[in-house]
Nucleic acid binder design. Structure first.
Lengths: 191, 191, 191, 191
DNA sequence: GCTTAAACGAGACGGTACGTCACGTCTTCTA
DNA sequence: TAGAAGACGTGACGTACCGTCTCGTTTAAGC
């Protein structure tokens, strides 16, 4: 319940802090990322940051997975192509330097902070599965997918495999990997 | 590079510390787990612990994923049954109270400590994929699996999906989940 | 080089910490004095202490030999009385429970920390020899003291003998001791 | 109560350890002197050291102030010369590199260890005041010293002033200092 | 020559304190 | 009231040294 009185918040601070966070994540990793350092790099102060985000984890979460990142997945009219697009987006999305550095740390803090847990999963599924339900239903109607395949399972498969691959492979996830993974999942839910 | 000289390490300490770690993980979670508390509960001292493990993360990793946990997966002679057994083991294994509490934290520290990264992945793949290569080749020979399906892909699918499900679902992973997931993966690598 | 920005240091902490230090010194001695215990007793924290003093020794030094303890020695107009007053003060000063407990330990740390060395000597000579030079010159002018007697020698004699007596005698230094010592030193620098 | 059985103690160890202690004291000072380092430098082990000395302080005490160091002070037949000899010896004795490094530390541990307290004072007075009583009586008989001057006072003066000078001056105590100090003390106890 | 027992080196042990770090909050002054 | 600055309490970190103990090995004296 913000009041209309008093000095308004400096609108540039949000952007500067998010940018500084992304930069520092790329340079030093999540563990060595201190709020003091972010504040310094953003040219602002710790209280200004905590006025906007309730914890370091929430800040990082928003910096790495910005709102409005996701658009509706293009409807290709074919299940295999749809799945491939999903895997593609998932991989592209998690292999940003900042995401690579931040994700494990965020996951680590999820268990301690239910708020973050919820926020992170929502953001995730928003990005990954926007409009997925209808598309899957259509595929089932076309006879391409099994009727018992759920959107949840599909997201679980795409996100889980991508995340694990991220932890395992030192390298980026190339097109060959995307192809193989998309094939596996597509067949997994096909009739 | 152990010497034969000097007082030998007290053989009871390793066990007591690992047990204390598992207990405390169940009680308090990874973030609130202090080495002092472990030492106290195990009836030993912080230096004695740091003589054996190079960091808290290494200790937890060994406590939660004990060596020799894994045995060869039973060869059922059928790919679907083999995959189901894998998923079953993977789920059973990660839903221990200690594992649930520790895994996110460990993953978080992996990025900061390459040593831990290696150790964790080795432990993981040892437990999950012991003898998997041969089994997959046999399945290919029987015409049950696609020739281009690799053991790595399989492990990635099983471990990734399980891990992600663990983060997502608050509850345990029941038989129905195991069935659905095993089906998805089996079809995914089938001919 | 104090800034005018930021939250100012809580002015009560310095006093509370110094008082707690003196109390604990009386109770437990220098060796068993921990910074944690001081912080607890003073109702503050270790970092707050280390913000103000660079080491335990510096803190103890300031607690035991507070600034402003010394006032100008009363000018009695007679060398014997002046010297007796000095010895008196020196003895009173070093036989405080806190001083008895702390001095040997501080002396022990002087060799390791040049900063402390300087600080301790300055504090000492400030307390003992404030205004001593003029008094000695006057005594020389009156023919009571030898012209070659220096203030340094006088301080060395008073402080050294007192300190050594403190180490040697278990008991306090009584008036008889003060008399004997003052006599020795007075004669020592007399014509 | 040592038995005659068993392997006899290696006679070279005592010497090697004392020598190593003196060397290390000169190099690193008392605070940075660890028993491990002494053992290593002496080519022996910690238990072998603790078999011979009950603590680090006792070892250092014996290393720095070896028994049999003192001989009877030469009887010059004149109080001034006797006192000068005493001051001379006291200064020579405490300005060894090892003594300079060790003394403050030892004094610091005296308060915590009564055994050491006694041992140190005995060693000190043995070295400084061997045969002093008779000499002082003779001086009194000759009318050179006041009848109420005690040997204790004399030792206190010599040792105290020297010790304090040691702490204060960075430099060695030269002949001029010895002269001035001897004069002060001699007059102090003269008729 | 065999036995015995203590000394030996190496190094692990419990204990305890050290000084440092980052968190998220709070308090001052200034704009 | 927001902002920068920076101190606050909390609580854990990993390290260091103490003096003791436990190994397996060596060394002499006594039988």
């Amino acid at each position: 319940m913000t009041t209309d009185f008093g000095r308004p918040r400096d609108p540039r601070i949000v952007g500067a802090v998010l940018a500084a966070t992304v930069e520092l994540l790329g340079e030093t990793g999540y563990a060595d990322l201190s709020v003091d350092a972010i504040a310094k790099k953003a040219g602002t102060s710790k209280p200004a940051i905590y006025r906007r985000w309730s914890s370091k984890a929430h800040l990082v979460h928003e910096a790495v997975f910005p709102l409005g990142e996701a658009t509706e997945l293009p409807d290709t009219g074919s299940l295999p192509r749809d799945v491939r697009a999903m895997v593609q987006r998932s991989a592209a999305f998690l292999t940003t330097p900042a995401a690579r550095a931040a994700l494990p740390g965020l996951v680590g803090e999820m268990s301690a902070d239910p708020t973050l847990h919820v926020a992170l999963l929502e953001r995730f599924s928003d990005i990954l599965s926007r409009g997925l339900g209808e598309r899957l239903e259509a595929a089932v109607a076309r006879g391409e997918a099994r009727p018992d395949a759920t959107a949840t399972d599909l997201v679980e498969a795409v996100a889980g495999i991508t995340f694990f691959a991220l932890l395992t492979h030192g390298t980026a996830l190339d097109d060959a990997w995307v192809d193989r993974t998309a094939t596996l999942i597509t067949r997994g839910i096909s009739t």
